[in-house]
């Protein structure tokens, strides 16, 4: 049958489908190949042993068994959770503070917003290089300030060279520094959306500042707080660049976060199958926390 012989209605339908197909094709291809196909391929690789030179060899669940019996894998999980447990609350709280401060003022608001946002647009590599220098244990600025404030040198002040917390603390400072401006701007947007009339009514009823914050701001801000916390959690969970530049996971693996562990296995040791298994675990952990957070959202988040 020829296209010309079709009824006009049918022609239009085919034409519409063609338009949709042409429009979607490039994006669909990119999204499908580099996300879904990649992820399925990742699952497949995770059941294999492969160093990119040898032939792919099916080994079943061996990679997962190796991961869950490997102290290094547990170490990377532990380091990641330590990072997340500090980074998430501090970034959210400081962000909330910045958002509220910016929301209170009118004069030079744009200037302050801009200045607090600068770390966000700086690349993590540059940020990490600058902070590595600030944290230099011998001639760095941070130690200069700490010592002149009366702090005694300890293993902490070895910073990136200290396996007992100093290195992780240094990496955390960079992560927090780079992120709070972003959270602040999100909180500012959330605060702006709360109608002034609530506060006016509360003032008439004689509420004090703390009561207003507790009973109006916090509940009505909860959708924003939820989003910020979730984004912050995922971003902290996937941290790698600052660690790579500042400590390379050391000393003594004390800053080897999960994504860096994955990266090292894949690109330093060429254990592609094993690294794929770790990727799948990373995905599973993130999914698990997404589900938990969605549950929490239903319980604690109030929409206006």
């Amino acid at each position: 049958m020829n296209f010309r012989d079709l009824s006009p209605k049918r022609k239009k339908k085919i034409h519409d489908h063609l338009v949709v197909g042409v429009c979607l094709a490039p994006s669909a291809l990119v999204v499908m190949v580099f996300t879904y196909m990649a992820f399925i391929y990742c699952i497949y690789l995770s059941f294999n042993n492969w160093n990119m030179l040898s032939r792919i060899r099916w080994i079943g669940l061996q990679n997962y068994v190796t991961a869950f019996t490997s102290p290094e894998f547990y170490n990377s999980l532990k380091v990641t959770f330590q990072y997340v447990l500090v980074a998430v609350p501090s970034c959210v709280l400081i962000g909330l503070m910045i958002g509220m401060l910016l929301n209170w003022i009118t004069f030079a608001k744009g200037f302050f917003r801009l200045m607090l946002f600068l770390p966000v647009i700086t690349s993590m590599v540059v940020a990490a290089v600058i902070w590595k220098w600030l944290f230099d244990p011998n001639v760095g600025f941070i130690n200069h300030i700490l010592f002149s404030l009366g702090f005694q040198p300890s293993h902490w002040t070895r910073w990136t060279q200290d396996p007992n917390g100093g290195a992780l603390a240094a990496v955390l400072v960079v992560g927090i520094w780079k992120r709070v401006g972003y959270n602040g701007v999100l909180f500012l947007a959330g605060l702006k959306s709360i109608s002034v009339s609530y506060y006016e009514a509360a003032t008439i009823d004689g509420a004090n500042a703390w009561q207003k914050f507790r009973l109006i701001t916090l509940p009505l801000l909860s959708p924003t707080t939820f989003i910020v916390t979730m984004l912050q959690f995922f971003s902290a969970f996937k941290v790698i660049e600052s660690v790579m530049v500042m400590t390379k996971g050391g000393p003594a693996k004390s800053t080897e976060v999960l994504v860096l562990y994955l990266y090292n296995n894949a690109f330093s040791f060429l254990k592609m199958g094993y690294a794929s298994a770790v990727s799948v675990v990373l995905f599973a952990v993130i999914m698990f926390f997404t589900l938990i957070q969605m549950r929490l959202e239903k319980r604690y988040v109030h929409y206006q």
Partner: peptide, 11 residues
């Protein structure tokens, strides 16, 4: 929902 870090190796 799929973090780019999880597809780094296959990609």
């Amino acid at each position: 929902m799929i973090p780019s870090q999880a597809t780094l190796v296959p990609n």
